[in-house]
Amino acid sequence: MIPYIHVPPIKLGPFTLEPFGIFVALGIILAARMLARQAEREGLDSTPLQDYAPWGVGVGVVVGHLFHLFAYHPEELSKSPFQILKVWDGLSSFGGLIGGILAAVVFFRMRKLRFRDYADAFALAVTPGWAIARLGCFAVHDHPGVRTDFFLAVNFPGGPRHDLGLYDAAFLFAISGLLLVLRNAGKLRGKLLPLLALLYAFGRFFFDSLRSTDLSYVDARYLGLTPAQFGCFGLVAFGLWGLVKWQAPPSKDTPAVGPGDRVQAQVR
């Protein structure tokens, strides 16, 4: 059994750094850097991804907060009319995912780029970044599950429970490893993002079935399901469609240059 350890916020003069925010920031930084590197490895221009990153994060945070308020905890809207503006006070990872997707759709259309060419880079970069961010959930234990004697249970005050932040992070790290193995083996090229959607949907649906219902602050249920579980149906649909319909993008070779210059051909 894992002991319940409360990670206190870090005081830096007038500023307070919350453990959750630190892990989220680390996850975003890692994802942004890996996104550019993965794109370059595929012979793609990484500049659009660097330009997209702040838009993806910004829209993701806003939509994640709105999703938290209106889907998970609508009762919080009664606190203050300004609660909707406090984007730092309550975030839904699934809402953040939706926001990032919306930002990507608009951004890539405006740039007249085909998102599918960058899809593998997104899968390989976002997954480990998301896993690190979920460690922030584990650090603050804000996703308690039902009571259990499972060996990975956390000894919460009042008794051991599943800690879904830990499970989600571990599952995402495992998916990250699988995607990396497939990329290095040249398997499912151009289809890693649909595979990620499919795998995560099944894992997240199961984990959300373990969420607590006996505490004072629990997630809203609709027809017995959490908002994320409904979202998992969309991920499954996208994953199956992408695995069947998406084709591997053409290999990108470095264009030829003038005589005397070195040309490096990328071999796929």
Rank of each mutant, 00 (worst) to 15 (best):
Y72I: 11
V154F: 03
H162M: 07
P74M: 09
G43P: 11
Q247L: 05
Q247A: 11
L182H: 07
H73C: 07
G234D: 00
P128Q: 10
A220L: 08
I29H: 13
H6T: 11
R189A: 15
M1K: 08
V181Q: 12
P255I: 04
I10M: 12
R37K: 14
L182C: 05
R221M: 08
R268N: 11
A256S: 14
F151T: 05
A119R: 03
Y52I: 01
I5S: 07
G231F: 02
P249G: 03
A169K: 09
P19W: 14
V106T: 07
Y167M: 12
C137H: 09
D51Q: 12
V7K: 05
L152K: 03
L166I: 04
S46W: 10
P227S: 05
I10L: 15
L179Q: 09
T213M: 04
P8G: 06
V61M: 15
T127W: 12
R116L: 13
P81W: 15
G260M: 10
K187H: 15
A201L: 05
L172H: 14
L35E: 10
Y52A: 07
P259R: 09
T226V: 00
G159A: 07
D168A: 12
G158A: 11
F205C: 01
L210G: 05
V106Y: 11
L179I: 09
D261L: 10
I22Q: 05
A119I: 03
S209H: 07
K112F: 08
S92V: 03
G99C: 04
V263S: 06
L102N: 01
V24T: 12
G95A: 04
F20E: 09
A256F: 14
L198D: 02
G145P: 03
K11R: 14
F233M: 01
A197Q: 03
Q266N: 13
D214L: 01
F107V: 01
A25T: 14
A53P: 07
D51L: 08
P8E: 06
R134E: 12
Q50Y: 13
L166R: 01
L85C: 02
F138I: 00
A125P: 05
R183E: 15
W246P: 00
A71S: 11
G13K: 07
L215Q: 09
V140W: 10
I5D: 07
F82P: 01
G60P: 05
V126T: 11
V62N: 03
V87P: 00
W246M: 04
A103S: 10
L152D: 04
G60Q: 08
L192I: 02
G60R: 07
L66V: 06
T127E: 09
V218F: 07
V154W: 02
